[in-house]
Design a binder for these strands. Structure first.
Ligand SMILES: NC(=O)c1ccc[n+]([C@@H]2O[C@H](COP(=O)([O-])OP(=O)(O)OC[C@H]3O[C@@H](n4cnc5c(N)ncnc54)[C@H](O)[C@@H]3O)[C@@H](O)[C@H]2O)c1
Ligand SMILES: NC(=O)c1ccc[n+]([C@@H]2O[C@H](COP(=O)([O-])OP(=O)(O)OC[C@H]3O[C@@H](n4cnc5c(N)ncnc54)[C@H](O)[C@@H]3O)[C@@H](O)[C@H]2O)c1
Lengths: 210, 210
DNA sequence: ATTAACTTGTTAAAAAAATCACAAGCTTGC
DNA sequence: GCAAGCTTGTGATTTTTTTAACAAGTTAAT
């Protein structure tokens, strides 16, 4: 099929499929049907087949999908069959948790440089990486091949951080701060806010009460 | 209008509206039109009016929405016009960042108790809260009025943590661990995984390249 | 070889969500 | 008091997404 436009929801589900498939593989499952995978992911099996069809034909009729092969195919489709180098801006509570999280590389991402404007933080070492001032971003980004920016500053500093990233020709941005940022339209921005999920839970609980 | 079923995407957008409205209020805007709010949130103005219509009529024709009033109405609609007490399970990198984050209460949530099974962590104090073993959950949850569980354990411990929460009659769960959990159907579960967003960015960047 | 039991990829149908378009309502100025 | 100018709330329409249905391909057993 190999379609042009892919729904955003599909991307989100592919992330879930990878997660579940990796567990299946660890448990020794070599082959899986869309029906079984669907149950494990709490979705409809046609949904899975349709999601995969956007990118190609990965299964065998009458058999199912070879798990390892499917994982590889999905990762290729998403563009995470390689490591993306990320620049972290803002090394506070959140930034530190991210730096200490050792799952990034395995999942296709590497925080290769960390920036903070607090003089008390500049110079601190994290593994083989030193925290430096965001003004160095423009010079370090091309040198180090930084492509994705992760903003973890307070909300009123997020735009400033975004400006540094844009100026350094970064190609995409994740913003953990609860504020909208303005960047040129060719740079994709994703907002991460746990409170979305907390609101959703609160709402679902409240709803159930009526 | 006051409809029965509300799209999940609507809840996500309401969270964005609150964020933007609070900034508008801080900047001294008392009234806003759906058109202007729409631009600030990068959505369609009918979308905003429709989202709000699910919950009631909050605007004044010819005028717009009174910002403070609208914030209050949205919070009421979502059920966050009060503080929800949360139980954190797993006080590692992520859990610690959450505990140190002082935005929770302002946003309607409070991490009122923290649990970890690591003997080195049990007994540590965080403000006026002491980390205790998850076996105490069942006894503390009703005592303290804990309603929402936040799982921040390693993925292979998430199900165990979920079981503790279910056993303690918790009403909803946020899972930060990258693994699916099984709980009774009346308990809503939300999965938080930043990698969704990283995948999405990687995909959007890769796509732009073709 | 043929049949029966599965499972995919895809087309068709249904459902859901987003957008448009406009009547209804508020405000201001004359 | 009325007209002109806005802006909401909502039915109608369009677009998007999800689900169902099934032909086509695979395997295994007889
Ligand atoms: N910690 C959490 O659990 C959590 C949860 C949800 C959202 N967030 C959001 O994530 C962001 C970071 O949260 P945190 O808890 O780490 O805050 P924090 O205050 O601990 O850290 C912010 C860091 O950003 C640095 N900084 C400020 N301005 C900067 C600039 N212009 N350039 C570079 N660095 C700059 C500060 O020096 C500090 O180190 C906030 O916007 C917060 O709302 C955090
Ligand atoms: N740190 C991050 O930035 C980050 C990012 C994305 C996802 N996550 C996910 O969040 C989860 C936590 O990450 P982390 O970095 O804090 O890990 P961590 O290893 O630092 O912390 C895990 C904590 O859970 C505790 N724990 C283990 N089993 C437990 C149990 N049965 N009951 C109670 N506590 C238990 C451990 O003692 C430890 O303190 C992981 O699943 C991780 O994949 C973390």
């Amino acid at each position: 099929m190999k379609s042009e436009h892919i729904p955003k929801a599909t991307i989100g589900r592919l992330a879930v499929y990878i997660q579940v498939l990796e567990n299946l593989l660890r448990d020794g499952n070599d082959v899986i049907s869309s029906e079984k995978l669907a149950r494990a992911c709490s979705v409809n099996s046609s949904q899975i087949r349709k999601d995969l069809a956007y990118f190609g034909e990965f299964g065998v009729r009458g058999v199912g999908y070879y798990v390892q092969e499917l994982i590889t195919s999905i990762k290729q489709s998403l563009g995470i069959d390689r490591v993306w180098k990320c620049a972290l801006i803002g090394v506070g509570n959140m930034g530190t948790a991210l730096l200490r999280h050792h799952d990034f590389e395995r999942r296709g991402f590497q925080i290769a440089a960390a920036f903070d404007c607090d003089p008390d933080k500049i110079g601190l070492e994290f593994g083989d990486m030193e925290i430096v001032c965001p003004t160095h971003l423009k010079e370090q980004a091309p040198e180090m091949g930084l492509e994705i920016g992760i903003i973890a500053t307070p909300p009123d500093r997020a735009q400033r951080a975004a400006n540094h990233l844009v100026d350094a020709n970064i190609r995409g941005i994740i913003n953990f701060a609860p504020s909208r940022i303005n960047v040129p339209p060719h740079i994709p921005v994703e907002y991460v806010d746990f409170f979305d999920h907390l609101y959703s839970i609160a709402f679902q609980i409240t709803l159930g009460n009526d």
